[in-house]
Design a protein around this nucleic acid. Structure first.
Length: 324
DNA sequence: CGAGTTTGACCTGCGC
DNA sequence: GCGCAGGTCAAACTCG
């Protein structure tokens, strides 16, 4: 990771040796910095204001850190960010014509479709004799898609968190379904799926090999349910504005939680977050706030309109479907 | 006992 | 076609 990106980090605080399951010492990157996907496997990196200024549908550059098409450096998320955003701001990389900020349901459907077909194939391999249901039109459709189109995946949303724990609490329940070693990295990548039935959201968690204190989390898909009730309570407590107004030693203002970040940055994903924070953003801009470990200095408040626009910026991607 | 994790096997996509 | 790396599956295992 480049020094430029490192500069974006919030005041660094060495990790404690004692371990517990409690998330602590989390340091967010520049809260106005986010990465987005345009179309599948195309990530957009940049500040939210960059995004806004370029208007929806006019991305400011992209890279494909996770796509298999960039095998040599797809593990290098922060390097991409460093080059494309932090250093010179906007990447000059041209955007593919079909890049689009909107996350059409058709895209997602295509992704799911593919996965389903994968499962079908696997099952067929394992128990071919189960059924011989003749020609399934949907299979033909899948075949055609496979031939004609690139593999499509649901939109992704990636960001980095400075944390000593890999799997950060975000309010949802996840089940780990895989772990893989990452090339050129001593740290494995973990794969999680939302435990809620019929919810296809996945997330990948990996540690940056260049800065092991950085956890890179990638969400894929959108939740079709609310926060689990048991977790909603704790989240609500965490979001109590009074706590933010009077930060306690147990909750240093700069040591806010990963899930809070997500919830406020993706207000439609966590519908109440915006209400909780409103104008009193909890985020300190790293560049404006280099050392406040021992004082109670109020955090720098990004313009409120950022959050409002964020709602528009992360539109259908994480939009909660209201279930009947 | 149910839910979650671990881990080896397998599949897919891509570059050479 | 082959090899590599990412992604997923699922049986075995652990834990509360």
């Amino acid at each position: 990771m480049g020094d430029e990106l490192r500069d974006l980090y919030y005041h660094h605080q060495p990790f404690q040796e004692d371990s517990s399951s409690v998330v602590r010492n989390i340091h967010m990157l520049d809260p106005s910095f986010m990465s987005f996907t345009t179309s599948h496997d195309e990530y957009l990196y940049g500040s939210t204001s960059d995004y806004i200024n370029n208007s929806l549908g006019k991305p400011f550059g992209f890279s494909s850190p996770f796509s298999s098409s960039s095998k040599d450096d797809h593990h290098d998320v922060d390097a991409n960010i460093s080059n494309d955003v932090v250093g010179g701001g906007i990447s000059e990389t041209p955007v593919t014509p079909n890049s689009s900020i909107s996350n059409s349901s058709s895209n997602e459907a295509a992704g799911d479709h593919h996965e389903d077909s994968n499962k079908k194939d696997k099952k067929q391999l394992k128990d071919e004799s189960l059924e011989d249901d003749g020609e399934d039109p949907s299979k033909n459709e899948n075949k055609a898609k496979k031939k004609g189109e690139k593999k499509q995946r649901p939109p992704k949303f990636a960001f980095m968190t400075k944390s000593e724990v890999d799997h950060l609490e975000d309010g949802y329940r996840w089940r780990k379904y895989g772990q893989k070693a990452v090339k050129n990295s001593p740290y494995p990548r973990s794969y999680y799926r939302c435990t809620s039935q019929k919810c296809q959201v996945k997330k990948r968690v990996e540690r940056s090999y260049q800065d092991p204190s950085i956890v890179i989390t990638t969400y894929e898909g959108q939740h079709n349910h609310h926060l689990p009730a048991t977790l909603r309570g704790s989240v609500a407590r965490m979001l109590n504005p009074s706590m933010l107004a009077q930060p306690s030693p147990l909750m240093a203002p700069q040591a806010f939680h990963h899930q809070e970040f997500i919830m406020s940055q993706m207000p439609q994903l966590y519908g109440h977050a915006n209400n909780a924070f409103g104008n009193s953003s909890m985020y300190a801009h790293p560049l404006h706030h280099h050392n406040n470990h021992n004082n109670q200095q109020q955090m720098q408040l990004p313009p409120h309109h950022d959050y409002g626009l964020l709602q528009d910026m992360v539109p259908s991607m994480f939009n909660l479907k209201q279930e009947p």
